[in-house]
Amino acid sequence: MTASLRDPLDAHLAELDRSLRGPARARRDIVREARDGLDDAADAYRRGGVDPHTAARLAVRDFGPVAEIAPLYQDELAAGQGRRTALLLAIALPALMVGWDFVWQSGLAPGPPAPAAVKVLARVQDVAATTIAAVSGLLVALTFRRTRSPRRVAAAAMVTSMVAVVVCGGSAIAMNLVNASEAWLRFTTQPVGLSAYVVSLGVMVLLNVSALRTLRTLRAARKDDRHRVE
């Protein structure tokens, strides 16, 4: 194919690519499929006897302006990212609870009985984690509803994830500060205790990253709306 044939298609696809925000793989997949579609449409015009450059231009015209199409894709990218975030919450929080229970009950991380304040905080954390996991499960289910606003569900997943980081992460830090010397001992001398801390921290970081990614896909969707209004 000549450069002049590719130009209108390339320019349109580059513009589409620039307008989308979300997981890189999902974006590549979207642009690749759009390219196939545009190539097919241009081929059909050429078979009809139109010169290559005009064929490409007509294919681009039929596709529609990026400002109109990109928001539709962006909704799907936001929904996908929101689903990931909600799924991560629904799996990771119960897994952390079970994991820590195992650490305590297995006797692999022995220590004196926890002070009352720690017990209260642990109770708060369990209730919060269970509630958040249940809400997240519901949000995952909602992402399968075609008619639900995908952006609202994604926004709810993002907020839930941030609440999880603040409440579960915060109560975990508070528990360890209340009982700092014991926590330090566990951190430095018990391999099981240490790995439990590392895994928990990792999960909190992942939740945060996932929430921020969702925020980014949603902000791109809002920007699309503003362009559409203008």
Binding site: I30, E33, A34, G37, A41, D62, F63, G64, P65, E68, I69, L72, Y73, D75, E76, A79, G80, R83, T143, F144, R145, R146, P150
Partner: peptide
């Protein structure tokens, strides 16, 4: 209809499991 609207619709139907 703009052909570009069909592709996001396909993604939407895929997300919904249809």
């Amino acid at each position: 209809l703009p052909t570009g609207t069909v592709y996001p619709a396909l993604r939407r139907l895929e997300r919904a499991g249809r």
